[in-house]
Simulated assay, not measured.
Amino acid sequence: MHTVNGAAINISGLVKHFRTGTAPLKAVDNVTLEIAAGSMVALTGPSGSGKSTLLHLIGAIEQADAGTIRIDDLKITTLRRAALAAYRRQVGFVFQRFHLLPALTVLDNVIAPVLPYRTRNDHSTRARELLAEVGLTGRERALPAQLSGGQQQRVAIARALMAKPRLLLADEPTGNLDSTTGNQILDLLLRLRDEHQMTIILATHDQRIAARSDRLIRLTDGRIADDLDLTDGEDPTDTLSRATRLRL
C-alpha cells in the first residue's frame, strides 16, 4: 500500500468551450469530480470526449470558462498569471510525443524544466538519480534520436519528476509504444507513484493500462459517463473485461 502524500483534487461544475466556426463546442461540460490523494486515475473515452482538455485544465494549461478546481486547498481557477506559473512548476507533465529537445542530451533534457528557477538543489545530481530510477543509467550523454520510443518516454517521465511534483498528469503516455513497452512504462509509473507519493491522472485509449489504475473515469461528449473503482480486489481479467465492455 502506498503512502498517501499526493495532491487531492476537487472539481466542481467545470466547463470549457472551444469555438469551431460559428458554434461553440463544449469540450468539458459541467464536470464535478473528486480524486483522492495518492491515487492513479485513468481518463478514458473516444477521441474528442474531453480527456486531454480535462488534463489541461487541471494542469492550468487551459483556463476554464466556468466551475472550480481545487488542488488541496489551492483554488487554481482564480489564480493570476504569476501564481498560475508557480502552480504549473509543481505539476509533472508527460505527453504522448515526449517533447524532448533534439539538440540536448538526455541529462540536459531532464534538467531543462528547472533551469530558469533558483534552487539550492544540485540539478545534475538529481537528474542522474532520476535517470537511474527510470532505468537509463549510462545514457545521460545520448541524444533523443539515439533512444527507442520507450527510452524517450522514460526520459520524459524523469523530466516530469525534476520539480518533485505531488501531481503527475500523463496524456496518452503509452500511445506511441508497443504493448510490451507500454506495460513497462505503466509498471514504472506505478512504482514511481509509490516511491514519490504522487497522485497520477492519465488519459488513455489503452484498455489494459486503464484496467490497472485505481479508478477508471469514462468521458463522453465532455461529461462523465462512467466512474469505476478498480481497487475492490477483483481479478485483473474480470477488471479488463469490465473495462472492455465500456468501450474505452
Rank of each mutant, 00 (worst) to 15 (best):
Q146S: 14
F93L: 13
L147N: 13
L190I: 15
R154H: 09
N109Q: 04
I209K: 00
D214N: 10
L177W: 03
Q90V: 06
P102Q: 04
A142D: 15
L192T: 09
H99K: 11
E140K: 08
L130D: 06
D206F: 00
T220P: 00
D194E: 14
R159V: 10
P116W: 05
L104M: 12
H99S: 11
L104R: 08
V106L: 14
R215V: 08
G149W: 02
I111N: 02
T119R: 13
R97H: 14
R139H: 15
L188N: 04
L189Q: 05
L115R: 12
A127Y: 04
T125Y: 02
E172A: 09
R128C: 11
R128A: 10
R141D: 14
I200F: 07
V94D: 03
H196R: 15
Q197L: 09
V134M: 11
G175D: 06
T174N: 01
E172V: 10
P173K: 04
N109L: 04
R120M: 12
L161E: 03
L143Y: 15
L107I: 06
A210I: 01
R215I: 07
T220L: 09
L115P: 01
A86F: 03
E133Q: 15
I209N: 00
L190D: 05
A103Y: 13
S148W: 07
A145F: 14
S124K: 14
Q207E: 14
D187V: 03
T137W: 00
A127S: 03
Y87I: 12
L192G: 09
L101Q: 08
Q90D: 14
D221A: 14
T119W: 00
L84K: 14
H205L: 01
L186E: 00
P116C: 07
R89C: 11
Y87K: 12
L100R: 09
D178A: 07
Y87M: 15
T137H: 08
L161Q: 05
L219E: 13
R159A: 10
A156S: 12
E133P: 03
A170Q: 01
P113R: 08
R154Q: 11
F93C: 07
I185G: 02
T125I: 01
G175A: 09
E172K: 10
A82D: 15
Q207W: 00
D206S: 05
M162Q: 05
L189D: 05
P144H: 08
G182V: 04
S124Y: 01
Q151L: 12
L107W: 06
R208L: 02
L192I: 12
L161P: 06
E129I: 10
T204E: 00
A127R: 02
L202E: 01
A86I: 03
T180R: 13
I185F: 02
R81K: 14
L168H: 11
L131Y: 07
T137L: 11
E129L: 10
H123P: 04
R88W: 11
R89M: 13
T105L: 09
A103I: 10
H205K: 02
M198N: 11
Q90H: 12
L219P: 12
